[in-house]
């Protein structure tokens, strides 16, 4: 049963890392707008032909 001394911290550590990822995602705005991305998904495939860096103007 002494494995619990390792298993318990590991379990909590896993939960903690998932929590940190979730908090990061929230703060990065991943959950701000839940309506548009499902719509955007419908036509994202066709947008690939114009990658953002192609459209970036020359600096200056």
């Amino acid at each position: 049963m002494s494995v619990i001394f390792i298993a318990l911290p590991v379990a909590i550590g896993l939960a903690l890392s998932a929590l940190l990822v979730f908090i990061w995602a929230t703060r990065a705005g991943q959950f701000d707008d839940l309506d548009t991305p499902p719509l955007r998904m419908l036509h994202d495939a066709t947008a690939r032909d114009a990658a953002p860096h192609d459209r970036t103007p020359p600096a200056g």
Binding site: F22, I23, T26, R27, F31, D32
Partner: peptide, 14 residues
């Protein structure tokens, strides 16, 4: 405010 609420729920859920 909504983000803070989500974070609180996440912490409470974990």
């Amino acid at each position: 405010m909504e983000r803070r609420q989500l974070v609180r729920i996440a912490v409470a859920g974990a």
